[in-house]
């Protein structure tokens, strides 16, 4: 179990985290989503005992990250955002080094990393600096796993890695999860939010929501339409200009559009817009909101309330 209780952290004038509370169950794969600068790395560094919260407390498997940091450091696997490999050491030497500082050997825990390591094993005599992004990522994960930690903390493991390797990476994490390990990974890619058992959305140092992808979708308060046209960008502007529109977002090749009211006549609006001839044929169909829609709605809510309170002051 990981208990994060009302944690605050600031660096000088900057509030990196404010009142973050979160529980993560044993054996869970938790994904923390948030844009750059949301405070993901700060939260993770506190989890792995590298930073001390200003207020609040964090417990990992019954151990306090401040009081019992030394005991905790044997039980954590941590993959920093920089991958922290030695570029001049070979693949094998990197792994060997991380195994030895945790007092173990590659052979002892080879079964745990076999599925990941076998992809890079053919290159084990190559310096880590000469690996591709995807291979570096696999090696860094192997290094973080080599001492069979109870909790695995991965700071943006998929950043700077190609799409295929990213997909493969989440499948590997699912497999590791089968070993009973608790895994927490952060990402700035919204589409990776569905990869975990639960996802949390961190925005400007505040945890806006933490739940299963299904629940997060249910929280979305508006109807959702997916619309296509021949000039999506212009159509987006037009839809946003309507006072009946709650949100409208470009989503791949479609526009995710939500009117404020459930019974709003979408067909009428679209045929009116189609008649102007600016957008070609427009088709809209009812759909379910994606996580990204929910997060966007949540973060806009925060910004709205902030500007309002700013105006009243």
């Amino acid at each position: 179990m990981i208990h994060i209780r009302k944690v605050y952290k600031s660096f000088g004038e900057v509030n990196a985290l404010s009142e973050v509370s979160l529980d993560i169950q044993d054996g869970e794969l938790f994904v923390l989503i948030g844009p750059d600068g949301a405070g993901k790395t700060t939260l993770f560094r506190m989890l792995v005992t590298l930073l001390v919260p200003d207020y609040g407390s964090i417990e990992v498997n019954g151990l306090d990250v401040v009081e019992n940091f030394r005991q905790l450091r044997t039980k954590m696997g941590y993959m920093p955002g920089t991958f922290s490999l030695y570029p001049d050491l070979t693949v094998e030497e990197n792994l060997e080094f991380y195994a030895s500082i945790f007092g173990t050997t590659i052979r002892k825990n080879y079964d745990l990393i076999r599925d990941i390591y076998k992809h890079i094993e053919p290159f084990k005599k190559r310096p880590a600096g000469k690996l591709s992004g995807g291979m570096k990522q696999k090696l860094a994960l192997s290094c973080a796993l080599i001492h069979r930690p109870e909790v695995l903390v991965l700071d943006e493991p998929t950043t700077g890695v190609d799409a295929a390797s990213r997909k493969e990476f989440w499948i590997m994490l699912k497999k590791i999860q089968q070993e009973g390990m608790t895994i927490i990974a952060s990402t700035a890619y919204m589409d990776e939010a569905v990869r975990g058992d639960r996802s949390g959305f961190l925005h400007q140092g505040k945890l806006l929501m933490a739940d299963t992808p299904g629940k997060i979708r249910e929280e979305y308060p508006y109807p959702m339409y997916s619309c296509r046209s021949e000039n999506n960008y212009a159509l987006l502007q037009a839809i946003r200009a309507e006072s009946s529109t709650a949100t409208a977002l470009l989503f791949g090749k479609t526009i995710h559009y939500s009117p404020v009211k459930e019974d709003f006549p979408v067909e009428e609006l679209m045929s009116g817009l189609e008649a102007t001839g600016k957008y070609g044929r427009i088709t809209c169909e009812k759909t379910k909101p994606e996580l990204e829609d929910s997060f966007s709605y949540l973060s806009k809510g925060i910004e709205r309330s902030e500007t309002q309170s700013g105006m009243t002051e």
Binding site: Y78, M79, F83, S84, Y86, I101
Partner: peptide, 13 residues
Amino acid sequence: EMGTMEAMLVSPL
């Protein structure tokens, strides 16, 4: 600078 210190500090060393 390389961030390896970060990984090393989280070890029992």
